[in-house]
């Protein structure tokens, strides 16, 4: 036991707790049960340890020790690769795939959560050493709250209006409102689709959103989340029964055609609204200098 034992211990525990709090198993069923969680809690523990020892190292004038943090950065980039590889491998066996953009988003958040753990441990240990354990606890709680805020992004319902529309056929063409989805040739398939399918139209609230929801990855994420939550009426070898999203080129609205097993309009609207807006899909044309100069954003 020396003067640093308790602060380091405190930092490590707070960091690991932070990682556990950030590790949520929800409707996405990811990470799955124990094994996936063990991996992430262990990595969180390592991150916490690295964050905690940084301050004592500096206080002992061991500045080279800080280079350990670069090792950590490499390590956690590896985490992102690992998540990406696993999810991409598994994705081809999903009835409705997640899509590359969604996977990239998940992988990035796994990496960044480890950095949040490092920062939490770093700050807790710092406060413990400079003041005392009570201030450290307050700092730790503040860090946990800030991490919570940092890790939650916006959802689809913040950026669009969602309306239910009946599906209909014009000849062999399937339409949601006036948005063409696809050509279905067989009358029996058409009947199935009218019976089991549901249509929704998402109207963007501003010009930035138009590009965001047009992103193919964002659209696939919506289809995946809806299919996971409400079930999907399809099997391998029935390509005609594929949920699809198409775009109205005129005004950027998108038409969603889904085949859920639970056909409740309110629930479906809620589920679509809760789909996360993928970081990689967000575009901000209104922030462009040329648009601002024109003054018409």
């Amino acid at each position: 036991m020396n003067e640093y034992t308790l602060p380091i211990l405190f930092g490590v525990i707070i960091g690991t707790v932070a990682r556990i709090l950030m590790l949520r198993t929800d409707y996405r069923q990811y990470p799955t049960y124990l094994h996936g969680k063990v991996i992430h809690v262990s990595l969180g523990f390592i991150a916490a340890a690295l964050g905690s020892v940084a301050i004592p190292a500096i206080m002992e004038l061991e500045f080279t020790a800080v280079t350990f943090l670069t090792v950590a950065a490499t390590q956690f980039r590896e985490v992102r690769n690992m998540e990406r590889n696993t999810l991409t491998e598994v994705d081809s066996f999903e009835l409705v795939p997640r899509g590359k953009t969604y996977i990239e988003g998940i992988a990035i958040s796994f990496e960044s959560r480890n950095y949040l753990v490092i920062i939490t441990s770093f700050i807790s240990t710092l406060v413990f050493l400079v003041w005392n354990v009570y201030y450290a606890m307050i700092a730790a709680i503040a860090c946990l709250i800030i991490s919570r805020i940092l890790m939650s992004g916006s959802t689809i319902k913040d950026i669009v209006d969602i309306k239910h529309h009946q599906l209909h056929f014009e000849g062999a063409g399937l339409y949601v409102d006036n948005i063409y989805i696809m050509n279905i040739g067989l009358p029996e398939r058409q009947e199935e689709i009218l019976k089991y399918g549901m249509g929704f139209v998402l109207t963007p609230k501003n010009m930035n959103v138009i590009t965001t929801i047009a992103n193919l990855g964002q659209r696939q994420a919506i289809l995946h989340d809806v299919s996971v939550t409400l079930g999907v009426f399809r099997d391998s070898g029935t390509p005609a029964l594929t949920p699809l999203i198409k775009r109205d080129l005129d005004d950027g609205r998108i038409g969603i055609f889904i085949l859920p097993q639970i056909r409740e309009v309110d629930k479906a609207i809620k589920v679509i609204g809760a789909v996360p807006v993928l970081e990689n899909a967000i575009r901000m044309p209104s922030e462009s200098g040329s648009v601002k100069k024109g003054g018409n954003s």
């Binding site: 000849g171 062999a172 696809m182 050509n183 279905i184 040739g185 067989l186 009358p187 029996e188 398939r189 391998s236 070898g237 390509p239 005609a240 594929t242």
Partner: peptide
């Protein structure tokens, strides 16, 4: 034609599309 298209759709894992009253195609997407 409809029956044949339905069978071929199932066998080939494709989608039957109708181009006109008298013409169907099976497309693998």
């Amino acid at each position: 034609a409809e029956d044949t298209a339905a069978n071929l759709e199932a066998i080939t894992d494709g989608i039957a599309h109708e181009l006109s009253e008298e013409l169907f195609i099976i497309v693998r997407h």
